[in-house]
Design a protein around this nucleic acid. Structure first.
Length: 338
DNA sequence: GAAGTGGAACTCATTGCACA
DNA sequence: TGTGCAATGAGTTCCACTTC
């Protein structure tokens, strides 16, 4: 491994001069600069990141913790974050907490050891008060600019970028009623999560306001996973008293629901109507007319990273909460043909 | 006095060694 | 065995020195 000392010896200068050439600081004779640069190019030298961090007493690393890295939602979120990071000198460190608070805490500790400059985090959960207190204390101890993304947690004092959850549930129910459906049901997310409760409450309120109050029997609890939604949907579809139209709580819930519908030999739009929260691009590729309440997840990632950069530049500014608007996309699955 | 350069101090975690 | 100190790694930065 070539070091700055090697470059300095080969170029016949001190390592201070090499450092000035690399960083374009101080005075360096143009001929010396060219000579040093030629050696750097010849030996493909690049400074050791750990040594640079050591001497600068800081890193250029941003930590990102998401709860389900395999979920395309978080894939898009990371894409947006990466777009903004690419325009800076920062690099990123990604962790998947797997919706597990213990893993989340270990990730925060690892990021502390990495001396990250900032953190973007989607908390693993928000329902257990003791876990929330622990998360709070871990973030306080980390003591770097932090932005909470998608899932807020009680008592948070950090900047946040969230989705209009209540409104998305509300507008989905409105659309289902406007399409002529009279009995509505829902496969919820994990109702221990605030985002799931908000979607659920928005849905119930719109149904009430639209004169189609939702029966308790038509609420099936999922957990934001394909498996959970599939099991809930199977129970719903096998019931004698199933709703005409259904709201599915996120992209994975929609996929689990569609799997159950297909297995049952039923057709969306003929046997049951549905609107899902989250856009699923793969269904567009298959030309599957699936109505949804979409959110711009890539933009959410971009915005979260921008808020973090602002916080890093101005640590004393007021807490900032940004909401990502929802967008209703109707493609026919919200109504029955017949 | 400005330009150009080098030496040494410094960063922090780890390791090895001396000494009680 | 436990403790303290120095050296190490690969950079950056400050200050002193030389040259023009």
């Amino acid at each position: 491994m070539v070091t700055i000392q090697d470059i300095a010896e080969i170029a016949g200068v001190s390592k201070a001069t090499v450092s000035r050439v690399i960083n374009r600081t101080g005075y360096v004779n143009e001929k010396t600069r060219e000579r040093v640069q030629a050696v750097i190019d010849q030996y493909h030298y690049s400074p050791s990141a750990s040594a640079v961090n050591l001497s600068r007493r800081e890193t250029n690393t941003i930590g990102v913790i998401v709860p389900e890295i395999a979920n395309t939602f978080f894939g898009e979120l990371l894409h947006g974050i990466g777009e903004v990071i690419d325009q800076t000198d920062f690099t990123s460190f990604y962790f998947d907490s797997d919706n597990n608070s213990d893993k989340e805490e270990r990730a925060i500790l690892a990021l502390e050891q990495q001396r990250v400059r900032g953190l973007l985090i989607t908390p693993a959960q928000d329902s257990d008060a003791a876990v929330n207190r622990r998360l709070y204390s871990y973030l306080e101890r980390l003591n770097v600019p932090t932005v909470v993304v998608d899932r807020d947690f009680p008592g948070s004092k950090w900047d946040g970028v969230f989705f209009e959850n209540y409104q998305s549930g509300y507008c989905a129910a409105e659309a289902l009623i406007a399409a002529g459906n009279r009995t509505l049901g829902m496969i919820t997310g994990d109702l221990r999560l605030k985002i799931a409760r908000e979607r659920y409450e928005g849905f119930l309120q719109a149904a009430q306001d639209g004169g189609c109050p939702v029966s308790e029997q038509h609420i099936y609890q999922g957990d934001f996973t394909i498996e959970g939604a599939y099991a809930a949907a199977k129970r719903m579809l096998e019931s004698d008293d199933r709703p005409q139209a259904v709201l599915t709580s996120n992209n994975l819930t929609s996929l689990g629901f569609l799997k159950a519908v297909t297995e049952k030999g039923m057709q969306i739009g003929r046997d049951i109507a549905v609107i899902g929260i989250d856009h699923i691009p793969e269904l567009d590729i298959l030309n599957y007319g699936f109505s949804c309440v979409a959110r711009d997840t890539v933009q959410m990632g971009r915005l979260a990273m921008q808020v973090l950069l602002e916080r890093m530049q101005n640590p004393d500014k007021q807490r900032q909460i940004c909401m990502i608007p929802h967008r209703l996309i109707l493609k026919g699955s919200e109504k029955m043909d017949g």
